[in-house]
Amino acid sequence: MTKATLSHQHAADQTAIQILVSGSLMPPGVSYKLRSALRSLADNTHRELAKRGAKGSFLEASIRGAEAETLLAGKQGVIVLGGADIDPGCYGQAACTGTIYGLNIEADKFELDLMRSAAKRGIPILGICRGMQLMNVLRGGDLIQDIGSDTIHVGSDENSVMVSHLVEIAEGSRLARMYIDKQISVRSAHHQALNRLGTGLRVAAQAADGIIEAVEDSGEHWMVGVQWHPEELSASKQDFRSLIEHFLGAARDHARLGD
């Protein structure tokens, strides 16, 4: 690579929208298969950001070395990825099922603090699967610790296998402005779900069985969470592109307004 090319690349990196991508991709006690699946989903997210002209910086939540405020400096958006279960202590409960796996309360506390700090600064936040569940916990909501193995949402014991099902997009939601169809097929793998909705959140999508599939901030802040995995390779590429483009649009608006 020539000096001119390197200089051009550096300039592009300096002007690109900067996105902090947080994930807990090494939860304790889980299989190599699940860890590989989580890494693949993170890689797919970074590829999509790059295609849209954004620069993603990945942060492993379980081994981060700086505080949230420091990590958010110069960032115009935050994505919190999927992963293992959230410690029930984070929403004031004790574990009531043996199906909970991969708990790491320090990673939970860090990602909650990251979203709290980003929200205070008006930085757009996109939560995927675990990221959406953390969003609800942040706002004082809680979770159904196990929805059962005989549902449309579960493909394997530790959710390393995706399944397809339909979700209904709520009229008037931000998601409704992203998707032409109000019923879309999604790819998901989760044995937990939102129960009591957090303060200031509204339901943006539901499955046929009533499980909440997406939430968003009911005010002006761009904060959207989806329970499904739009970044999974078999998911609709158009749906993922639309979601990322709207998120990056909000990030660019935030950049124009200043931090």
Rank of each mutant, 00 (worst) to 15 (best):
M26C: 08
G249H: 13
R121I: 09
S242T: 13
A11M: 09
I105N: 06
S117H: 06
L20C: 07
R252Q: 15
L114V: 05
S24I: 01
K237I: 10
S22T: 10
T97F: 09
A12E: 11
L194N: 02
R174N: 07
L41S: 09
Q183M: 07
E220T: 11
G155C: 10
Q183I: 12
G155M: 07
E171S: 15
V226P: 04
I211N: 03
E158I: 14
E171W: 02
H221N: 12
S164P: 06
R52H: 15
A37H: 04
A250M: 07
L41I: 09
A208E: 15
G172M: 12
D217W: 07
L103T: 12
M162G: 01
E220N: 13
V78Q: 04
C90H: 05
P88M: 08
A189Y: 04
T151A: 08
K33N: 11
D217K: 06
A251S: 15
S40F: 10
F58A: 13
D259P: 01
A205K: 09
E158P: 01
L49D: 05
L248K: 05
D253P: 00
T70Q: 14
G225C: 02
G29T: 06
E69W: 00
R241E: 15
C129N: 01
I123N: 03
A66L: 10
E111L: 05
D253V: 13
E216A: 11
G131R: 01
T45H: 05
L81N: 03
L114G: 03
S36Y: 08
H229M: 05
A205Q: 08
M223R: 07
I212M: 02
A118D: 04
F247I: 03
L233R: 13
I128M: 04
N104S: 07
A176V: 10
S160L: 06
N136P: 07
G53L: 11
I63W: 06
L20Y: 07
Q238S: 14
I211Q: 09
L34H: 03
W228E: 04
N104K: 07
S160F: 12
G131W: 00
L59C: 14
A37F: 02
W228S: 04
V163W: 06
D113S: 14
H165I: 05
M178W: 13
K109E: 14
R202P: 00
N195I: 01
V154D: 00
S7T: 13
L41W: 12
V78G: 03
H191Y: 05
L81Y: 00
G77C: 09
R121T: 09
S7I: 09
T97A: 09
V154S: 00
A208D: 15
Q145K: 06
G56Q: 08
Q9V: 10
D108K: 08
K182N: 15
I152R: 10
F247Y: 06
Y91I: 09
K75H: 10
R64P: 00
L6T: 08
L6D: 11
Q183E: 15
L166K: 14
A193R: 02
A251H: 05
K120S: 15
E245G: 06
R241L: 11
G198S: 02
L126Q: 06
M1C: 08
K75E: 01
L114R: 03
H8Y: 11
A170H: 08
S242G: 01
L143A: 08
Q133S: 10
M132D: 07
A84H: 00
E69G: 02
T5E: 15
K109T: 11
A118I: 05
L81A: 02
G219N: 13
